[in-house]
Amino acid sequence: MAGKTTASTSDEPVEYEVLIGINYPPNKRAEPGDVVTDLPYGSKALLLEVGAIKQVTK
């Protein structure tokens, strides 16, 4: 199996669609309709709860 690589779904970043414009560190802005993968870890739960983002991949 040398030279073979397998993609693991756990290694893929989770994508979130922005529903309400948000600013997040470091100095980034996402507008409604943008799909982002680099949201700060501690902010995701709150942003999901208030409806600012929705998860589009698992």
Rank of each mutant, 00 (worst) to 15 (best):
V35E: 03
D11C: 06
T57Y: 06
K4F: 14
V14P: 02
A2S: 11
E31C: 01
V14L: 07
I22D: 01
K58L: 10
V18S: 00
G42R: 10
E31L: 14
S8I: 10
K4V: 14
P26T: 11
M1Q: 09
Q55H: 05
V18Y: 00
P25D: 10
E17K: 09
G51T: 06
T6Q: 14
K58P: 00
V56A: 05
P32K: 03
G3K: 10
A7V: 15
T6N: 12
V14S: 01
K4L: 15
E31G: 00
A7S: 10
T6I: 13
I53S: 01
K58D: 15
L39I: 05
R29Y: 13
S8P: 01
L48G: 07
V18L: 02
A30H: 00
N27L: 08
S8H: 13
I22Q: 03
V50S: 08
T5R: 12
S43D: 14
D34P: 01
A2C: 01
P32L: 11
D34L: 01
Y16H: 12
Y41I: 13
V50D: 02
A2H: 10
V36S: 02
Y24N: 03
G21L: 04
T57S: 14
A45V: 13
N27I: 08
K58T: 13
P32H: 07
M1Y: 14
T9F: 15
P32A: 05
K58M: 05
P25R: 14
A7D: 02
R29F: 13
